[in-house]
Design a protein around this nucleic acid. Structure first.
Length: 561
RNA sequence: GCGCCCGUAGCUCAACCGGAUAGAGCACUCGCCUUCUAAGCGAGUGGUUGCAGGUUCAAGUCCUGCCGGGCGCGCCA
């Protein structure tokens, strides 16, 4: 709709350029905005304001000229000049109502677009190391990352969900030692407990399962415990598989699944780390100092150079990261988005610098990052810091068990990633109007209930006589509802462009709010068949958009509550 | 000290590429269930958008400097 109005304005500009009112060589950027105030019509353009100066005219005079040059059309019913020189467009009722027909016809596809043109995009998120249960921060990553994937998919991208983890480093060794200690019956208080060992109670479960020679099937790990307390290697494999499985179960309970699990160890075994190092050396971006090998990241915007190979011959963490992203690029992902906690933001510059130093034509801003800030969990007004199972942090499982999947996902995805989030457990679990999740779901369930009362015959005719009757809908709130529905595709697009799935949540809250108001003021199943059919069509369209939007958030759309 | 993010109503948050009178919910006050789900609706109260400059016809939004909070500044990951 915006595009169509912009198109009309474009034609008016061309005409005025031909007349000389607008300088022919002046670049014109046409902006059409939704209006905030309905007295300003449906859409507005600031075109006359931006062109006033180069044209040497008063904005309102120029607006007048632009309006006179607008081609004839059926889209717009009225145009006004307002304020300092805005051009306000009032859309014709018919063209507005059309959107309802579109929604009913397109169903699940309404709001989706093809702007991604089927290009491959990889979204890496969660990427927790298998050293313990997932915590709230991972939960935020999972909620934001998965929703982002859904949004990218809705914008026509071919999305791959990827989970990367370290299965072989010092931390994993530490994990193995901790499990081994538990297998041997030691406790964290014991003097011979491994230094910096993992102290959480979950380690006991891993140890017991290992001793019982259980078989573990995670998404990407399949191991049977040997039970041998002295076989550290066997313990390591088992512990990784065990915790991976636990994470998988949490993620499944959260409604999040991955296409690819990528092991850091494979970068070593397949020689990709070595190859990356060699390439960096060959390109002359490295030097030896103090027995270590350094990468000149300062050549690419870093504030100091970074060690890539330590004195002891091991690599620092960011080198495999560079090798990993080189691999992503070589796998054909021209676009990659990494969703991570903001506590790792210092890696952004390093990884990008490393990729530039490879000199392989990888674009400068590659990869994209979405960094989420910390999550603070509160209950009863107090900060919650500990969980029994993990010991030192609140687990994702705790939240899912306590407040439910939908509410947890909603709360974690509904705020912009770059601001800190307070997760109020009491609010999230309250089944009341305080809780936006239920507020939105309730709107969906209510419509389902109403449609359930309508006759099958009427429902069958909803797309024909229902849509045809939309002209009868003259109420302000009906008009407002249709306007909100019309904006949905823009919101999906906006979420995709800014990589901010949270805007979907905001939109749905607004749509639900307008609907609840409408529902309370007007009956849908009224005697007048024409009015009823129109309202049924409108309601069905709202239900569809609510369902589509909730789906992008990974939150369910219940038919009854 | 340096870098990144944030600062909007008492609280939690909105505000589309810079647009017109900064919006919701909670809390507080008062109303609405014999009618499709009251997990709902309506009305009222509540603001120098942290502070000070600058750019612009127009700034919560962009720029600079402060103040406050978070995170990061390792040959840890």
């Amino acid at each position: 709709m915006k595009e169509q109005v912009a198109e009309l304005l474009g034609q008016a500009v061309d005409q005025l350029k031909a007349k000389g009112t607008i300088p022919g060589d002046h670049p014109v950027r046409i902006m059409v905005d939704n209006t905030r105030d309905k007295t300003h019509g449906d859409l507005a353009s600031n075109l006359a304001l931006t062109l006033a100066k180069p044209c040497g005219q008063k904005p309102r005079d120029l607006a007048e000229a632009i309006i006179e040059s607008l081609p004839d059309n059926t889209l717009i019913s009225k145009v006004e000049i307002a304020g300092p020189g805005f051009i306000n467009f009032f859309l014709a009722s018919d063209s507005v109502a059309e959107i309802v027909g579109d929604i009913l016809e397109q169903g699940y596809d309404f709001g989706r677009n093809t702007s991604g043109q089927g290009e491959k995009v990889q979204v890496e998120f969660v990427s927790a190391n298998p050293t313990g249960p997932l915590h709230v921060g991972h939960g935020r990553g999972a909620a934001v990352g998965d929703s982002l994937c859904r949004v990218m998919d809705a914008n026509g991208w071919n999305v791959t969900r990827e989970f990367y983890y370290n299965d072989a480093g010092a931390q994993i060794n530490n994990l193995a030692l901790s499990v081994q200690a538990r297998v041997k019956g030691l406790t964290p208080d014991d003097p011979s407990w491994p230094e910096d060992g993992y102290r959480g109670e979950y380690i006991i479960d891993v140890a017991n399962s290992y001793k019982a020679k259980d078989t573990i099937d995670a998404d990407d790990q399949h191991v049977t415990g040997s039970g041998d307390p002295d076989d550290l290697e066997a313990i390591r494999h088992f512990a990784v598989a065990y915790l991976r499985r636990e994470q998988d179960l949490d993620l499944k309970a959260f409604g999040v699944e991955f296409d690819v699990f990528f092991l850091e160890s494979s970068l070593y075994t397949e020689g990709k780390v070595e190859a990356t190092v060699q390439q960096l050396i060959d390109n002359g971006h490295t030097y030896e100092k103090d027995g270590a090998l350094w990468l000149k990241t300062t050549e690419f915007g870093d504030d100091k150079d970074r060690v890539m190979r330590k004195k002891d011959g091991n690599y620092t963490y960011f080198l495999p990261d560079v090798a990993y992203h080189k691999d992503k690029f070589e796998r054909g992902f021209k676009r990659v988005i990494n969703e991570q906690g903001a506590d790792h933001h210092s890696t952004v510059t390093r990884v990008r610098a490393g990729l530039q130093a490879l000199n392989e034509g990888i674009p400068e801003g590659y990869p994209d990052y979405v960094l989420h800030q910390m999550v603070l969990v509160t209950k009863g007004g107090e900060e919650v810091k500990l969980s029994k199972r993990a010991g030192s942090y609140v687990t994702l499982r705790d939240l899912i068990d306590e407040v439910g999947r939908d509410a947890t996902r909603y709360f974690l995805v509904s705020r912009r990633a770059d601001s800190q989030l307070t997760f109020d457990i009491d609010l999230a679990r309250s089944q009341s109007n305080d809780n936006p999740v239920y507020y939105i779901q309730y709107a969906h369930a209510r419509i389902c209930a109403v449609l359930g009362k309508a006759s099958q015959d009427d429902l069958d005719n909803i797309t024909t006589s229902g849509v045809a009757a939309l002209g009868e809908l003259e109420l302000d709130d009906e008009r407002e509802l249709v306007t909100q529905l019309r904006r949905y595709p823009e919101v999906v697009q906006h979420a995709g462009q800014t990589l901010e799935p949270a805007v979907i949540a905001t939109y749905l809250k607004e749509l639900a709010s307008i609907f609840h108001g409408y529902y309370n003021n007007h009956r849908i199943l009224v005697d007048d068949p024409s009015v009823m059919m129109g309202r049924l069509a409108l309601s069905a369209a709202i239900r569809q958009v609510l369902a589509n939007g909730l789906d992008l958030l990974g939150v369910g759309a219940p038919e009854q509550m």
